[in-house]
Design a protein around this nucleic acid. Structure first.
Lengths: 343, 343
DNA sequence: CTGAAAGCGCTTACAG
DNA sequence: CTGAAAGCGCTTACAG
């Protein structure tokens, strides 16, 4: 159904239909009613107007979740960044398009083609594992892009990295200042890039603090979830030797490990074993005890991404690479700083 | 910058530029290079093609969060529905547009105008408080809509409701079967519609079970968050009289209340006081003890919404109203069913 | 109040 | 391999 066919059905000219659609005042009430009636009957929705093509402003920002996995709105890192990103872009007058990557996997469609088709003005690209070729094409294209935890090299791309080197050092420093010297690590499976980076950073920081690494206190689960943390910690308990403090590669691993240490070894947290998690998910606030964790400033990352993208779109910025510091959120799973320093 | 100007800059015809853009094969490598070069330099992005207008398929679904608040990706009800909705729509070949309502508040723009402009094929509308006029206009329009917890009356609209009557009855039934007779409620502020519905449902269910309502065991916080639960429970402790079981209007209220009962009254959960929350947020699994809660089947709602919307778009369905049952997720905050039944 | 006509930015058979 | 020309669905001054 197009405007031409519809105008014939309504017995008026194309111009008149167009005016009804756009709410022009100079149309008689009778004509307006009739045209609207016919539009209703045929469920007619006008195609994208040339007007918008002319202004060349779609008001649309693309959201790309790079990698094989699909966007998961439940993922707290993702959704907290999107919260501030979306409200900031909203204030600037943009709506957000979330690309479905189910489609890209089947047909040969590319992100760039989608962006052009929809006249997307800029994209935010969130990093996952196994970034597709289509993302690189987008990076190299004229479409302004912001990468989150993803290095982008294109002429119209900038990126934001979280400072994972600095963050792990803080964990070891915190343990060290509280008097803990026997440190262990519980991570996801060894194939996970994020877990490996965190583990390597932890080992490096331990070495620079002159602490001895005991391999039996380094354990790995299947994934980042609670059950993996439980099993890894339980295995450590069964091996008969426990460190005084554990850094976990995710908060859920920390929660699972805590459950195992309590249940399988009767440990008190933090008196017998201290724990630090990573990610700062909500649940850490409500466990007993609440868990100290490494947090990324997701609200800041989202807001920064919005500002940088807007500047890129309006050519007010050179491409750039920004690093956002992480923070150690101190709760109760390592004991009081003051109390322990007395040791 | 349009295709005409660009073709002049590149010294070729409009047709040739168009072919380069669309990756046609019959262009010499040299010409292709030059055109791409010029496109890069001028950051040219083609406007929406007429081709897409012709096919009349944008492949776009609109997401509207009705009401004054903005979409909050951290909200677990919202984001878990969107998870399944998005992946289902993705399989069907659609991308999602999240409308920013910051904009609607300022300018006179309407959702319908945005939908038309972008040729949105259908919308999902998530209910909030104070639904705007613009949402009703969209409901009444030819754009197919699915309302979530929002009754839609339009000729091309269906909706999905969660069964809040049934859900509260289950709470009282569960308490009753475990032998608890002295029941209390902790809710959000009295102005909150959701909290009021839950409270009224709870009172009704208590009456139908012949239980006496004691007003001193009905308390209210400022909002749905943990601190409000803590304060409301603490106030109850200070008044000197506690029920044997508490239903909280949200999980965070339940978590806060639990903290207060433990800390301010030395209560054990569930031995001294049993608790049921509402919403089934992740944190409930990791508290001590894990909290029994009323869950909506969010995955099912999301998938249903996607299927119903797709059917509506393809005219394969009458408009309809579907109710999804809620479920009581039994964990440890009310004690073992078997143990208590012995009472 | 209505509509014929010129225009928007783009695509696509078709001729060379 | 390239481009002139007809076409897409729509908007908008302008004449009546």
């Amino acid at each position: 159904m197009n405007i031409k066919t519809l105008s014939k059905l309504a017995g008026v000219s194309i111009s008149t239909v167009s005016k009804v659609i756009n709410g022009y005042a100079d149309i008689s009430e009778e004509t307006r009613k009739r045209v609207q009636q016919v539009m209703q009957e045929h469920a007619y929705i006008p195609a994208n107007s040339t007007k918008s093509s002319a202004t060349n402003r779609s008001g649309l920002i693309g959201v790309v979740f790079a990698g094989k996995q699909n966007i998961d709105f439940s993922h707290s890192f993702f959704n907290e960044i999107m919260n501030t990103f979306k409200s900031q872009m909203g204030i600037l007058g943009y709506d957000l398009v979330f690309f479905s990557n189910e489609k890209f996997q089947q047909s040969g469609e590319t992100y760039l083609a989608r962006c052009r088709h929809l006249q997307i003005e800029g994209c935010i690209i969130l990093s996952g594992q196994d970034v597709e070729e289509s993302v690189h094409e987008l990076d190299q294209s004229p479409v302004p892009c912001i990468g989150i935890d993803l290095v982008l090299a294109g002429q119209n791309s900038s990126h934001i990295l979280s400072d994972s080197h600095n963050n792990i050092t803080k964990v070891v420093e915190h343990f060290y200042l509280l008097g803990y010297r026997e440190l262990g690590y519980i991570g996801s499976n060894r194939d996970s890039e994020i877990s490996s980076i965190r583990e390597q950073g932890f080992r490096n920081a331990m070495q620079s603090y002159g602490l001895t690494i005991q391999e039996e206190w380094f354990a790995h689960g299947q994934d980042f979830y609670e059950e993996s943390g439980y099993r890894a910690a339980k295995a450590m308990v069964e091996r008969g030797s426990l460190p005084r403090a554990i850094f976990a590669g995710s908060d859920l691993l920390a929660i699972g490990a805590m459950r195992a240490f309590k249940k399988e070894a009767g440990c008190r947290i933090p008196e017998d074993i201290a724990i630090i998690g990573c990610d700062d998910i909500d649940a850490c606030k409500y466990t007993s005890p609440p868990i100290t964790t490494v947090a990324q400033n997701k609200a800041k990352i989202g807001r920064l991404a919005a500002m940088m993208l807007n500047d890129l779109i309006h050519n007010q910025m050179q491409t750039s690479s920004v690093t956002v510091e992480t923070e150690l959120i101190i709760r109760e799973s390592c004991g009081s700083q003051i109390a322990r320093i007395g040791l």
